[in-house]
Amino acid sequence: MNDVLDVALRLVIVFAVFMVLPLVVGQTEHKVMAHMQGRLGPMYAGGFHGWAQLVADGVKFAQKEDIVPAEADRRIFQLAPAVALLPYLLVLVAIPIGPSEGAVGQVVDAGIFFVLAVMGVGVLGSLMAGWASANKFSLLGGLRTAAQLLAYELPMLLAAASVAMAAGTVSLPGILDAFEWWWLPWQIVGALVFFVAGLAELQRPPFDMPVADSEIIFGAYTEYTGLRFALFLLAEYAGIVVLCGLTTVLFLGGWHGPFGADGLGWVWTLLKTAVLAFVVIWLRVSYPRLREDQLQKLAWTTLIPLALAQIALTGIVKVAIS
């Protein structure tokens, strides 16, 4: 009984985090992006500086009619948002935020592979949406999504593999246990590759070619309205949370901090995640969208060689110190 309660409690907490953090990131994006453009952003909803804007958006989305295009592949069209969103929920279960046993939803032995595998499944949602919408813009969006995923999955995996080599384990808490501060300069290239590839996998600007609104409306999500559309958006922001959390855990030392590692480890994790989420927003505001050929070129000619070089460096240092 106690075990069941424990599991239920963990799931509830993970679910709460899953529902709250993406909204926090979304609201931060509203405000940060506005101020970076000399605007104020939402100011009304909720009274104080529009803090409840996303709640209001959610209510609005829930009220909208759920439309499925007549020519669409109904079942797949309706299933796609869930396929896009649920993997991030699963990933969140495995991300440790503190050193203690209670600070992670579930310890997964092959943690890195688990999170990367499940994140890859999320993209299937976009592909399903793109294909099932019976819309040429959606189809183009789906194609671009697939091409982007194929290009960026590899550098992401290689960068993650570098950390796994350094730590000698593929379990996320295990990596954090092995973390030393000098891993930061050692793995910095891998960290950059991982973060950039992750951004591309989430289709965040400047890698938002699959949803380029000036060319293909909203890519795979063009035909979606109401709650299903909101689920896709939620998936994007959940993806940001997951990506930032993962980068924190893999490259920035998670709960390790200059001080207070015992009780306040989770604060360090959250802080680093928040800073990374800010960087995600910052990059979105600062850079224009990459063209499709630039996207592919960046992945195949820059990120993959860099990731391979990082692995070589990791191997050399690992052999040298052991």
């Binding site: 595998a117 890859g120 789906g142 697939a146 194929l150």
Partner: peptide, 23 residues
């Protein structure tokens, strides 16, 4: 380990490639 690699390689990459080709 085999299970997650299965998901990573087959679901994450092979099927995506397949869908890409189908599209």
């Amino acid at each position: 380990f085999i299970a997650w690699v299965q998901v990573l390689i087959y679901v994450g990459s092979v099927v995506v490639l397949l869908l890409f080709g189908l599209m």
